[in-house]
Design a protein around this nucleic acid. Structure first.
Length: 785
DNA sequence: TTTATACAAGTTTTT
DNA sequence: CTTGTATAAA
């Protein structure tokens, strides 16, 4: 018996998985296909390292999401047992790691040219960025029509992901548009630094710079972590690539660094956000001598589903091929249905889900089913239909708790308390609730602040000195400043008036700011605002919870570091740590697995999940692939990967639909079926065209009954059926009132005739089978008498 | 300073 | 059709 066979950590693994776990030294690339037990391998690998005697604090595992980090931590904990030595293990997100390193080492960079952030910075989220950008664009006398803040920010984000700061961007700017963009970038950076704030991309970019320029910081970091693991490596951008090479020693050297990256190029769907698929495709060149392990065995999907996914993804050119194979032979073919319009599609999907539930095997609760779509706008029709059918559902979208209006308001107050320079937060709450500080007077104070080179907050306290501010406004501003000073003890965070605990501070801010009263009043007016009040209470609870688990000893911002002079008051330190933690958590409403509901979500949101039954809707050109993705990319490879991700979520049953007609933005238009449909393997799928059948042709469930094949797949340009009854059915020899016979339903009387050509249908009251609407083309009716 | 109305625009979104 | 923003009026 070999050690491998007796080591419980290697038990139940395939040869490939075992190889991945055992390859602890040097660079390793694990190509993990969808459903190949990736998480299992990563967690076992960490546990295995520990079992070899590697101290936990030498291991660093990086993920993109808090959820992934949490799961990994938990599963390592389970493997090792509760009391075993996982203490000191670092499992975190890229951004949280960077935030921590910057807090700890930013003082080392003070005074360097172009380095303007302090360790007590605020982290701006997408909303804050946008608010700031709007202001910047306004101040530059540009119009947001020509310079949409969203797209400007996207360009800046891309630049930062490639580690181009404003100067580097300007150097590379040739045309007028790029040069203007460079100017905006510079102004945006000035504004960020003026607010002592960083955006998410800065966290990465600044950390890379820190590790490149500060030998002390780099030596300390590299002295600590010896083993680095990165999950979802196909989603890393250039900044993250460089960061990972700086975290451990030996990158590019013989033997190489102990960097183990795990990912699947076929599931790279965030290229538009700066992810560089080349990082994983070219890993072997960047880390010479890298060991490559392919996990191709799929433990999730049945053979026909996997074959369908494989056939599709094979069309991509830029990829590393993996032989996919499954342990689940047999299984139903994926069903592909062409529908008439989105309502027909929605109804078909809901009927299909109901049929899955009735079939009952193997798993058939609502929670085992999901519906995916390319964009959120498509969810509405599905929702309506689900609601109408009484099927419980949840949407895996929903605004994250800390992004909600009322919560963000409260947090903005707290952010001003922690960082009075934070102008975005300040302007958000200066007049909320209304305290007679209008836009005009605020603009004058802002102007004065800029002129005197002081912060807006400082200028507010001194507004009385301005001649063009009325006494009322100036008084309101003074009272605002006094209020905040009361919370902070005049900035000292010391003294009897200052709250003793974080939760108490939050409570006090909610009450004294008038925010709670503001939302209480709103709740009386409209009941939809009622949970806003509850959310404010929830925020207090979250602060209390944070406070209970907060350990000042392990707060990186409080660690003794060379550049630090004055100690931070405990409450302020705790508040900053709290604000940082909520900034780095985009925890959307958790989809409650116990809720027993069908899950609706975008294809992007589906990555990493699995369901027994999956329906994907809207496989039409310009939707999937989306029109925007098609610009300049005729191959639409990322869109194909997106489709692949959706298909590979399905364990047992898969339904893919497209509609002949779709109403988008109020316009009903004829669609073109997605190119991806034609790329699916014909022999592995059950294709049916129901785009010309009637919605109420419902007595033979479309899926368990015979598949209806349309005789004319391309009824070019023909209009869909409209209401409007006709007295006769041309070519069928009967009219309203005629008696007819149906092979199954027997004899009946024609009540209504409607439609034209192939869409001609009749509503017939059968003597024994009830009233039904049938498509004459298929109904094989004969006249009686 | 708030409210009404017009009008334009409109993927995906881990932190 | 929806959403948010800009402008006008109260």
């Amino acid at each position: 018996m070999t050690t491998a066979e007796i080591d419980p950590l290697l038990e139940g693994l395939t040869d490939a998985q075992r190889e991945a776990v055992l390859a602890t030294e040097g660079p390793v690339l694990i190509l993990a296909a969808a459903g190949s037990g990736k998480t299992r391998v990563i967690t076992r690998r960490i546990a295995y390292l520990l079992s070899l005697g590697v101290p936990p604090w030498q291991i660093l595992a990086l993920t993109f999401t808090n959820k992934a980090a949490g799961e990994m931590r938990e599963r390592v904990g389970v493997l090792l047992g509760p009391d075993a030595g996982a203490r000191g293990l670092t499992v975190t997100t890229f951004h949280a790691l960077c935030a921590r390193l910057l807090r700890r080492y930013a003082p080392l960079m003070e005074g360097r040219p172009g380095w303007a952030i302090r360790h007590d910075y605020t982290i701006y989220d997408a909303d804050d960025q946008q608010a700031l950008m709007k202001r910047v664009i306004g101040e530059m006398n540009l119009t947001s029509a020509n310079w949409p803040p969203r797209s400007v920010l996207a360009s800046i984000s891309h630049a930062k992901n490639e580690l181009k700061d404003a100067l580097a961007f300007e150097a590379g700017a040739g045309d007028f548009y790029s040069r203007s963009l460079a100017k905006i970038y510079q102004a945006y950076e000035r504004a960020l630094r003026g607010a002592n704030a960083v955006d998410f991309d800065d966290l990465l970019m600044l950390t890379v710079r820190l590790l490149q320029e500060s030998d002390e910081a780099r030596d300390e970091v590299q002295g600590r972590w010896k083993y680095l693991m990165i999950d979802e490596y196909q989603d890393t951008n250039h900044a993250q690539f460089l960061l990972s090479s700086l975290l451990v020693t030996g990158a590019g050297q013989p033997g190489g660094a102990n960097v183990c990256v795990v990912g699947d190029p076929d599931q790279s769907i965030y290229g538009w956000r700066g992810a560089d698929i080349a990082n994983i495709l070219d890993f072997e060149e960047q880390y010479p001598g890298a060991r490559v392990v392919t996990l191709g065995q799929n433990f999730r999907s049945t053979a026909p589903i996997l074959a369908t996914a494989d056939a599709l993804i094979r069309r991509n050119k830029r990829r590393k091929h993996k032989d996919l194979f499954t342990t689940r032979p047999g299984g139903e073919k994926p069903e592909v249905v062409l529908c008439r319009d989105e309502h027909h599609e929605a109804r078909l999907v809901v009927d299909w889900l109901k049929a899955r539930r009735e079939a009952g095997t193997p798993e058939a609760s609502w929670k085992d089913m999901a519906v995916f779509y390319r964009n959120n706008a498509l969810s509405r029709v599905i929702e309506d239909e689900l609601r109408g059918a009484g099927v419980p559902y949840v949407i895996a979208r929903g605004t994250a708790f800390y992004q909600r209006e009322e919560v963000k308001d409260a947090l903005s107050y707290l952010r001003v308390v922690a960082n009075p320079a934070d102008e975005v937060s300040l302007s958000r709450i200066i007049n909320k609730p209304a305290r007679k500080i209008g836009k005009a007077s605020l603009a004058r104070v802002e102007h004065a602040a800029a002129e005197r080179g002081i912060t807006l907050f400082e200028a507010l306290g001194d507004a009385g000195a301005l001649t063009d501010i009325g006494p009322g406004g100036a008084g309101a501003m003074r009272r605002f400043v006094e209020m905040v000073d009361g919370w902070t003890g005049g900035g000292s965070f010391l003294g009897a008036e200052v709250s003793a605990s974080l939760a108490a501070l939050v409570e006090r801010v909610l009450n004294e700011s008038g925010l709670r009263a503001h939302y209480k009043a709103a709740a009386v007016k409209s009941e939809s605002d009622e949970d806003k009040l509850a959310n404010l209470d929830e925020l207090v609870s979250s602060a209390r919870e944070f406070e209970e688990s907060y350990d000042p000893e392990s707060d990186p911002a409080l660690a003794v570091s060379p550049g630090e002079q004055t100690p931070t008051p405990p409450l302020l330190a705790m508040l900053r740590a709290y604000l940082e933690s909520v900034s780095l958590v985009a925890d959307a409403d958790k989809v409650d697995p116990a809720s027993g509901a069908v899950t609706l979500m975008t294809l992007h949101a589906a990555k990493g999940l699995e369901f027994h039954a999956v329906a994907i809707v809207g496989l039409e050109e310009n939707l999937l692939p989306s029109s925007r993705a098609l610009e300049g990319d005729p191959d639409a490879e990322e869109e194909r990967r997106l489709c692949f991700v959706g298909i590979t979520r399905a364990m047992s049953r898969l339904l893919i639909t497209a509609s002949r007609y779709r109403t988008l933005r109020g316009l009903r238009e004829r669609t073109i079926p997605s190119r991806f449909l034609t790329e699916l393997p014909a022999e592995q799928i059950a294709l049916s065209d129901q785009s010309e059948t009637m919605e109420d042709f419902d007595d033979t469930p479309s899926f368990d009954g015979p598949v209806v094949k349309a005789s004319r797949p391309h009824a070019g340009g023909e209009r869909p059926p409209r209401g409007g009854g006709l007295p006769t059915a041309p070519g069928y020899g009967f009219s309203v009132g005629s008696r007819v016979r149906h092979p199954q339903f027997g004899e009946g009387e024609v009540k209504v005739i409607q439609g034209v050509g192939v869409n001609l249908r009749a509503t017939i009251a059968f003597r024994d089978a009830g009233t039904k609407t049938l498509v004459l083309q298929y109904a094989r009716l004969t006249t009686v008498g």
